[in-house]
Deep mutational scan, measured.
Amino acid sequence: MSIQHFRVALIPFFAAFCLPVFAHPETLVKVKDAEDQLGARVGYIELDLNSGKILESFRPEERFPMMSTFKVLLCGAVLSRVDAGQEQLGRRIHYSQNDLVEYSPVTEKHLTDGMTVRELCSAAITMSDNTAANLLLTTIGGPKELTAFLHNMGDHVTRLDRWEPELNEAIPNDERDTTMPAAMATTLRKLLTGELLTLASRQQLIDWMEADKVAGPLLRSALPAGWFIADKSGAGERGSRGIIAALGPDGKPSRIVVIYTTGSQATMDERNRQIAEIGASLIKHW
């Protein structure tokens, strides 16, 4: 067993022997301040990774656009098919120029040779490549099948209805392509620590998230040296922004954090800054 596999296998073990965790309302004060600064709703939840206990939450059962955070769930569904012998990570998928959609920095470079399922998941999570996500959605049967996968996990809230990039439209009061912070946090925890996926697939999923290259201005910008984070960000229309993450000190994750916002007129930089400040408060009061 590799060191990384050992780390993920012992996530519940280490967490069980940690000192009790206590909620700190100071972080919620910052979440509410972010709402004021952005002029928009902000949803927040913080779960203990081992027990699933909610440590703090704000608007945990209000719907927010998922945006690209759905790509972690998508690759979880792909990995479940791999575990069941219905898919192979090494299978190569070929596609054409007509398949390319807006923001496809990886797939646009491989029109000639195609990409493997493993490479597509890596591109979808680490670079948020939209064509990679659409190609992977095709392998599982489309958005409705991802929703069905989530329902089978016990998540009857999260739903995907459309493809990239239309799913980022974020129309107010439109339930399409949305989740709730509580539902997303619980589902992410199941994917990373539950028995739904094999140990190898859980490790692969967290490795992809740990290698995320496009979430630097968010929670990662607030992390002290030595902290662990595996995350996936999302951005959408109407001032929408979000991030889902597993993080913790001492090089291992111990909490799940989900943050979503929508309806702001603020710039992307300002949305990023507010999420980073929430992260800084979380870490300060850990």
Results as ranks from 00 to 15, higher is better:
S2V: 08
Q4L: 09
F6H: 08
P12H: 13
P12N: 11
F14M: 11
A16D: 03
P20I: 02
A23K: 05
H24G: 14
L28N: 07
V29S: 10
K30M: 12
K30L: 11
K32E: 09
D33G: 13
A34S: 14
A34I: 10
E35S: 05
E35C: 05
D36C: 15
L38Q: 06
L38H: 07
V42P: 00
G43D: 00
N50H: 12
G52I: 03
P60M: 13
E61C: 07
F64I: 02
P65V: 04
S68C: 01
T69F: 01
T69E: 02
F70L: 05
K71I: 00
C75L: 05
C75W: 00
V78Y: 03
V82T: 09
G85E: 11
Q86S: 12
Q88V: 11
L89C: 05
R92M: 10
Q97M: 15
D99T: 09
L100C: 06
V101Y: 08
P105S: 05
V106N: 06
E108G: 12
H110Y: 13
T112P: 12
D113T: 14
M115K: 03
V117Q: 03
C121W: 00
S122Q: 15
A123V: 07
A124D: 01
I125R: 00
I125T: 06
T126D: 07
M127H: 08
N134C: 04
L135I: 14
G141Y: 05
G141I: 05
G141E: 06
G142C: 04
G142Q: 04
P143V: 07
K144W: 09
E145V: 12
E145C: 13
T147G: 09
H151N: 15
D155E: 05
R162Y: 03
W163N: 11
D174I: 03
D177W: 01
T178A: 05
P181F: 00
M184A: 07
A185P: 00
T187G: 08
T187Y: 03
L188K: 00
L191S: 03
L191H: 04
A200S: 14
S201P: 03
Q203T: 12
Q204D: 09
L205S: 01
I206L: 13
I206W: 13
M209R: 00
E210A: 10
D212W: 02
D212A: 04
K213W: 06
K213D: 02
L219T: 03
L219G: 03
L223R: 05
G226D: 11
W227L: 01
W227V: 02
I229L: 07
A230R: 01
K232G: 00
S240P: 01
G242E: 01
G242M: 02
A246N: 05
D250E: 14
K252N: 12
I259E: 00
Y260E: 00
G263R: 07
T267S: 13
M268T: 08
D269Q: 12
D269L: 11
Q274W: 15
Q274D: 04
I275H: 01
I275V: 12
L282S: 06
I283S: 06
I283M: 11
I283T: 09
H285I: 04
H285V: 09
W286K: 02
